[in-house]
């Protein structure tokens, strides 16, 4: 039976009726049209579907939309403010933290939480903190540099 949910996504309230088995990632992509959140593996491994649920990085392929009823969600579409890139987005831009871009939305979201929890991470801590996100292109080095850039930029703001 369908259930009513109300979810705030990127500071916009949404009300919908959904089947309980609808995954959160499909709700975001198919019902709300927010296709920035990617589906890579669908098996909780790759991290491409990572979003923030009440400030915490979560793999949205491993959560039902009904579980997020009442939650505040941030996806990649919600990071920039007034047309200005979030420091993490800017870091990926400046340091070439992406190639094909498939992993990038999830990577940026996970990295955003990382510097929220640890504002001045070492390279080791960055690599460890992004272990839930796979990238098949970059070899990670530029991603680590992008996160360092963002951490510094955020500290300077």
């Amino acid at each position: 039976m369908k259930q009513a949910i109300s979810i705030n996504v990127n500071e916009v309230d949404h009300r919908d009726e959904v089947e309980p088995r609808l995954l959160l990632v499909h709700y975001l992509r198919d019902l709300l049209g927010l296709t920035g959140t990617h589906v890579g593996c669908e098996t909780s491994i790759c991290g491409a579907c990572t979003i923030l649920v009440d400030g915490q990085a979560v793999k949205s392929c491993t959560m039902f939309a009904v579980q997020a009823d009442g939650a505040n969600i941030t996806t990649i579409e919600g990071l920039a403010t007034n047309g200005n890139l979030h420091p993490m987005q800017e870091g990926f831009w400046e340091k070439h933290g992406l190639q094909c871009g498939y992993c990038t939305p999830g990577m940026i979201i996970a990295a955003t939480q990382l510097i929220d929890r640890n504002p001045n991470p070492s390279r080791d801590e960055i690599r460890h903190g992004l272990e839930g996100n796979l990238c098949r292109c970059t070899g990670y080095q530029h991603i680590v540099e992008a996160v360092e850039y963002a951490a510094k930029k955020k500290a300077d703001l």
């Binding site: 991290g47 990572t50 839930g132």
Partner: peptide, 9 residues
Amino acid sequence: IGDVQVRNK
């Protein structure tokens, strides 16, 4: 355990 996202949930 797992990774950061897994440990969050």
